[in-house]
Design a protein around this nucleic acid. Structure first.
Lengths: 209, 209
DNA sequence: CGCAGATCCTGACACTGTCAAGATAGAATG
DNA sequence: CATTCTATCTTGACAGTGTCAGGATCTGCG
């Protein structure tokens, strides 16, 4: 159904999906233009009719990924009820869940060359940031978050979430040494929660009076 | 002096330096084996007598980078005097300063394929982490840092520092919109400080009683 | 000196991204 | 319906890459 051999119907979408499949199977560095063409069952130069070059393909994949990410984040915040503090936490948790659930895509989205060369990707990433800023501002209006400038708090919250997720994805924050591989995911989410509450409450001993 | 044309003296070191030069000039993705061979003034297959393959070269560069990083961090902590809290902050600041001062090398050190394929790089990164853990533990012994498990606090501190630095290097946390390019560095350090103190004190409003 | 081994170079192979030219399908026009 | 047009896809080629095999050259030891 809907695969008329020569004129493919919607090859652009098919190439994006094929790229997703390749990147999740073989990692970011295994993603090549010819590989996604093979995966899509098409000739090696066919992608050039839908993307200017390889960079344009991964750019489109990254933009799509960020769009899905902001959808996850806003949905998580909406579903979290009236408490703005748990809403903020759930937003962060959604960020972590997305990254841990699509590790290779997340790595692709954070490729530095995209940040340097693609304003579209930067804008898409900023959109995810804006969701966090909005959640922080709501928390401040509700009186559960300190500070006057929401962007200041959002910067540290974003830094913490992004940092812990990156470190987890790169395997540098395994909970115990030598945990069974199957239990990694639950351990990862526990580490994320731990970091989220600790960055909310702080860890510097408050001097009395 | 010390450049006997054929037998190069210390080509291994020269290749590492050439790789550093190439990576800072052309970025991580411009770093190729043939490029560093050209930079070192040597033939395109010469590196194979000192490194098993390209991955081994960038692995060695990353390990070297992490060694320099831990040196910077420990030195900063030692120079910070007796106050364990400022010692902890200075350790984080040193991390940020290294990353912002060697952006491309920092990006190379954080390449995900290294984390997945090279235990040596993971160990080198963990060594940097251990410096932070030690600083946190010292702060706890001095009574200026909360918590019992130093690794828990160190995880969030590391996450915050690493996160803010990564976001800054990728240009996602510019202070004001459209700051002059020359002032970027000072703005970046201010953002780092802001995040460090905020993650230390926390931003959740404490409910009285 | 003469040899052994380390070090470097040349040449080749498979692979990649990219472009040019030709083949084929569906759409528009008569 | 027949014809032409255009977008789409394929084939073939080129430069550049990582990598290996084989030959050339230097250094140190006997």
């Amino acid at each position: 159904m809907a695969k008329p051999a020569y004129h493919h119907g919607d090859l652009r979408r098919a190439l994006l999906d094929a790229g997703l499949a390749v990147v999740e199977r073989e990692g970011v560095e295994g993603l090549g233009l010819r590989a996604v063409a093979r995966e899509a069952g098409v000739s090696h130069a066919a992608p050039y009719h839908h993307f200017a070059d390889k960079a344009a393909l991964v750019e489109a994949m990254a933009v799509q990924g960020f769009a899905d990410l902001v959808a996850d984040m806003t949905r998580a915040r909406e579903l979290s009820g009236a408490d703005e503090l748990t809403g903020l936490f759930e937003t962060g948790r959604a960020y972590a869940r997305f990254a841990l659930g699509h590790e290779e895509l997340f790595r692709l989205m954070n490729r530095p060359e995209l940040r340097r060369d693609s304003p579209a990707v930067v804008a898409a990433a900023q959109a995810a940031y804006d969701v966090l800023v909005a959640a922080v501002a709501a928390g401040q209006r509700a009186g559960v978050v300190d500070g006057t400038d929401p962007r200041s708090v959002a910067r540290t919250a974003w830094s913490a979430v992004h940092g812990v997720v990156v470190l987890l994805v790169d395997g540098l924050l395994a909970e115990g040494p030598g945990e069974p591989a199957g239990a990694e995911r639950v351990g990862a989410e526990r580490v994320v929660d731990e970091v989220l509450v600790l960055v909310g409450t702080g860890f510097v001993t408050r001097h009395p009076g």
